[in-house]
């Protein structure tokens, strides 16, 4: 049933997702972070659309459209708007320097491949290859959350993790039931709103959104 064109497309989108993972780690500016996240979500939407076309499951189309609308347009704009409003510095301020981060993430990608390799042989889904990439995306998202200092960059890490989970869901099961996906989208959106509002409050109380300074007590 699978023709090679859609397989190629899936592979290409998956490669773009992996590439944006690494560019997220490598980029030093807040603006490019949100932009890269938007590109990644766009690639994810494209991948979902190809899967929908291939499996003829209409509900994945809806999910693809929602993914693009919400994660590629609304959330990045919202984050950009907030960073402009609270006037944080444009630099990302990683705790681990960028070359080191990149090497760690390359190791994480290898680990993801190593972990998923035994499972990949069992799968029959056309997108089975994406499992390793989704694992790598989750791991790199977690790494972004741990190694970046600002509250907003940590939010982006969480969004990347969510992208990875979404990719895994598509890769393994041709996506979860519609209602679950909608719930997840809603959760993510509300999560981002809460986090950004929270960052806003942190900024007002502490005059910075450096998450490490949260440890200090303040009366």
């Amino acid at each position: 049933m699978q023709d090679s064109l859609s397989l190629d497309l899936v592979d290409t989108f998956a490669a773009i997702i992996l590439l944006t993972d690494f560019m997220l780690v490598a980029s030093g500016r807040m603006r490019s972070l949100t932009r890269l996240f938007a590109i990644q979500s766009l690639a994810l939407g494209g991948l979902a659309a190809v899967v929908a076309f291939e499996t003829k499951a209409e509900n994945i189309y809806i999910i693809a459209v929602l993914s693009v609308a919400l994660k590629a347009i609304v959330i990045p704009r919202f984050i950009d708007y907030t960073t402009e409003k609270i006037q944080v510095k444009k630099e990302v301020e990683p705790l681990i320097k960028i070359p080191g981060s990149l090497l760690i993430c390359a190791a994480l990608a290898l680990l993801a491949y190593y972990v998923t390799e035994p499972i990949m042989d069992l799968g029959t889904a056309i997108t089975g290859n994406c499992l390793a990439i989704s694992f790598a995306t989750v791991l790199i998202g977690l790494f972004l959350m741990v190694s970046r200092r600002k509250a907003i960059t940590e939010a982006i890490g969480l969004l990347v993790v969510e992208n990875g989970v979404f990719l895994a869901a598509i890769a393994m099961t041709y996506s979860m039931p519609m209602i679950v996906e909608l719930g997840v989208f809603f959760d993510v959106f509300v999560g981002v709103v809460i986090m950004v509002v929270f960052a806003f409050r942190i900024n007002r109380t502490f005059d910075s959104i450096d998450a490490t300074s949260l440890r200090g007590l303040k009366d």
Partner: peptide, 22 residues
């Protein structure tokens, strides 16, 4: 410079890895 060069190194590493993954 190491930033840029590590990016290109990771890209090439990814190329090899993605040959096996995809």
């Amino acid at each position: 410079l190491p930033n840029l060069l590590t990016v290109s190194f990771t890209l090439s590493l990814l190329a090899v890895v993605s040959f096996y993954i995809l």
